[in-house]
Amino acid sequence: MKAAEIRSKSSDELKDELLKLRKEAFNLRFQQASGQLENTARVRQVRRDIARIKTVIGEKA
């Protein structure tokens, strides 16, 4: 997800997206622990998207 996409969203949309990404991160960690994770790069992408969203939420506040 690009920073420009994130900045164009409202605060409610950002909070919803953050919640969705946190659930995905949890599921990915679970898959990694059980040895079922296929796309290991997705963990990094999700972590960075979470950080981007938190940054933009902080900027808007």
Rank of each mutant, 00 (worst) to 15 (best):
A4G: 10
I50S: 13
I53Y: 06
K54S: 15
A51I: 04
I53Q: 06
I6E: 05
K54L: 15
A4T: 14
L37R: 00
G58Y: 09
K60E: 12
K2N: 12
I50T: 13
V43A: 11
Q36M: 14
R42N: 05
Q36F: 15
I53G: 01
E59F: 13
A25L: 15
A3N: 11
K9Y: 05
I6N: 03
A4E: 15
T40A: 03
K2I: 08
K2Q: 07
F26V: 02
Q36G: 09
A3T: 14
K15E: 08
R29P: 02
G58R: 15
F26G: 04
D12V: 06
Q45N: 13
R42I: 05
D49S: 10
M1V: 11
Q32R: 13
I6G: 03
Q31S: 04
F30V: 07
D12K: 13
V56L: 13
R52E: 07
K54C: 14
E17C: 02
E24V: 11
D49R: 05
R44S: 10
R47D: 03
I53S: 02
R22Y: 02
D12P: 06
K2G: 12
L14D: 04
Q32L: 12
F30T: 10
K2E: 08
D49Q: 05
A33K: 07
E59G: 09
R42E: 04
N39P: 01
R7Q: 06
R22F: 07
R48T: 12
D12T: 11
A3H: 06
K20A: 10
G58H: 11
M1I: 10
A33N: 07
K15A: 06
D16L: 02
S8E: 12
K54A: 15
V56Q: 14
E59H: 11
K20W: 01
I53P: 06
A41F: 02
S10I: 04
Q36D: 12
R42H: 09
R47P: 03
Q45H: 12
I57C: 06
D16M: 01
A25C: 05
E38A: 08
Q36R: 14
D16F: 03
A4C: 07
K23E: 00
Q36V: 08
V46H: 01
G58Q: 14
F30E: 02
T40D: 01
A3E: 13
Q31P: 00
E5H: 10
S11D: 15
L18F: 08
F26T: 03
E13D: 06
Q32W: 07
E59N: 10
S11L: 11
A61C: 04
I57Q: 09
K54E: 15
A41V: 08
I53L: 09
E13C: 01
K20I: 07
A25E: 06
L28I: 14
E13W: 03
E38T: 09
K15W: 02
